[in-house]
Write a protein that binds this DNA or RNA. Structure first.
Lengths: 154, 154
DNA sequence: TACTGATAGTCAGCATACTGATCAATATCA
DNA sequence: TGATATTGATCAGTATGCTGACTATCAGTA
């Protein structure tokens, strides 16, 4: 059994590849220009106003060097704001703009239907089970990547 | 339920992120410099000597524009060869070199142990079930990405 | 307070992935 | 045959993601 096509890593790559393609197709058809990464960042900024980039990265398990470019593009599109923090002059505070809020509201149904499409080969029960197993495997492997998920500090 | 962290697409991204990190860490520790994509390409070239780039892309579901760079790097490392095809002057024939064969032989146990590590949070049964569900979801979504899996032509 | 270490963000460089275009060669068919 | 369509490979451009380095700043401590 050394067929790469049947290894977990390869299946992970393929499923992710399909997930991204479905997301971009659905969102693009709905008239929006937002990537999966940008969507997750924007939704997390909205839920945690004023958070800094490292915290954002931890909340969605992005590498901090990737966040820089993602925020650049959200700011360029007018969906988010980046300001110097008053508490810590190293840090940047992030906030969603009114247009970002509007975009998020209009796009969310599309994003959710994209999630259904990428699971369309599975029954509802199987979809739930896939998500459960992914969550479990991810929790066990969380510290193995450079960008582990981090709970928000309170 | 609009928490991006709990959407299938986000779980897919995280699991793939961990899978790549584990692969690179294990393979790097064993003293090799090969990415998951390069490994899959090399193994598939070995199993299908003389195949062209489009066929290779189809066999492992890569985009054809990605293959160009991957082969560039395999050739630069001396692991694969690329020659003009005699049957079709547009096409390139790919073959594995002796060094590529040696590398593949030495690296395969490491790759297989990496697969176990990325599933370490799951029981053997759960790992099997995760792979079954991924295969099923991928089969249903195959045509939704730009780089679907294609059976070899005979 | 001065030193040391840690942290926030950015950057350069590299490797996937994609879109869309181009070029050369091949296939198809009127 | 000749016009047309298709195909194999590459390229430019863009967006993730990573490693490793760097600057500025902050925190802890001797």
């Amino acid at each position: 059994m050394s067929d790469p096509n049947d290894m977990p890593g390869h299946l992970a790559r393929r499923f992710q590849q399909i997930a991204v393609a479905v997301f971009l197709a659905e969102v693009g058809e709905a008239g929006f220009d937002l990537t999966p990464v940008q969507y997750a960042a924007l939704a997390t900024i909205k839920a945690n106003p004023g958070l800094d980039q490292v915290t954002l990265a931890g909340l969605i398990a992005y590498d901090r060097t990737t966040i820089t470019g993602v925020i650049d593009r959200l700011v360029a599109k007018g969906l988010a704001e980046r300001r110097a923090s008053s508490r810590d002059r190293r840090a940047r505070e992030l906030d969603i703009t009114d247009e970002g809020r509007r975009t998020l509201r209009k796009i969310t149904p599309t994003v959710e239907s994209a999630q259904r499409i990428m699971l369309r080969g599975l029954s509802a029960k199987e979809g739930e089970e896939l998500m459960r197993l992914l969550r479990k495997a991810i929790a066990a492997g969380n510290e193995l990547s450079r960008a582990p998920l981090r709970e928000a500090q309170v």
